[in-house]
Amino acid sequence: MDERVRNFIEETAQDLVGLDVALFYQANPRAFDTASGIALRTHRAVDEVEPALSRMSENGFLEVLSRGDGRYRVYALSPAPEAWRTLCRVSEAYHEDPEARREIILMLVQRRLQERMTGDAPGGGGGDG
């Protein structure tokens, strides 16, 4: 698996919701919406989507427009070419390379198990961190 993909999974996606959000923006690069809107489109809980959006923003994959005195934030794909290229690599690996797909899922599952064991996983009994 491409190193860039591996890094994105480990550092940005981190979990299956993060992967879904990333794949959503790769498929719909012109989407711009709030966490609630993205949660609706990805059929995930808002409180799961928000951390994913934050990580993608922090790592330069999304840009955030804050509106209404910070009342809500809108997430859109970053115009940086490198960010787009990385998302395309992730999508290719996930959709077109079965081996890489298995590896990505394994990475995310192991990470989740590890977090549960250390009590970091959401809902795993470790609080909200």
Binding site: N28, T34, L40, R41, V74
Partner: peptide, 14 residues
């Protein structure tokens, strides 16, 4: 062409 998806309130705001 751009095909953009968003929420109605976000669109109006933006």
């Amino acid at each position: 062409v751009r095909i953009m998806c968003t929420s109605p309130d976000v669109f109006l705001d933006q």
